[in-house]
Simulated scan of single mutants.
Amino acid sequence: MKPEITFEEFSKIDIRIGTITQVKDFPNARKPSYQLTIDFGGLDIKKSSAQITHLYSKEALLNKQILAVVNFSKKQIANFFSECLVLGIENSQKKIVLLQASKSNLKNGQPVN
């Protein structure tokens, strides 16, 4: 388990729902990855790199609603700037499974409460 944090510290994390609108291969990444373009509604469009190529095809990701932390500072990965952190969990085969809402067609940009 990671160190305990306060509610105030947790409240700084901004997790939102967004829809993947574009998926590109990312050949310059060290580990197999995609470059994702995600629509967060009123928060605008953000880009992210995600190591999810083992379980998801580009076609399966397109128009999928996912959860992401949207208030991280930009992180450079090779020649790409990731602007948010797509959330996932490692399965028993050490592959990332995306976290997503159990209902579809939620409003992009809605925060997790």
Rank of each mutant, 00 (worst) to 15 (best):
I77E: 03
K12L: 07
G18F: 06
L67T: 01
K46Q: 10
K47Y: 05
E8P: 11
D25F: 09
I13L: 10
N91G: 07
K46L: 11
I13A: 02
L67H: 00
S11W: 02
K95C: 13
M1H: 07
N91R: 08
M1P: 14
R16D: 03
V23C: 05
Q93K: 13
I17C: 11
F81L: 15
T21M: 12
Q65V: 04
I52G: 08
V70E: 00
S82G: 08
T6G: 08
K74F: 10
E9R: 13
T37K: 13
S102W: 10
L87A: 03
S49V: 05
Q65L: 04
T21E: 12
E8V: 14
C84M: 01
A78P: 07
L106T: 02
I66T: 00
A101D: 03
S48H: 00
N105A: 13
Q22E: 13
K94L: 11
F80K: 14
Q22M: 11
R16L: 15
S57R: 09
V112P: 00
G41T: 03
N91C: 10
K94F: 12
R30P: 09
F10C: 09
N63D: 12
I77R: 02
Q35N: 08
M1Y: 07
K2M: 09
I20E: 04
F7K: 11
S92K: 15
K75L: 14
A29N: 01
P3L: 11
N105S: 12
L62P: 00
P3T: 07
F81T: 06
V112S: 02
I89F: 15
I38T: 04
N79T: 14
K103C: 09
K94V: 09
S92N: 14
S48T: 03
N71H: 04
V97L: 12
V112R: 00
I38W: 07
T6K: 06
F26R: 02
S73D: 11
K31A: 14
E90S: 13
S104E: 15
H54D: 11
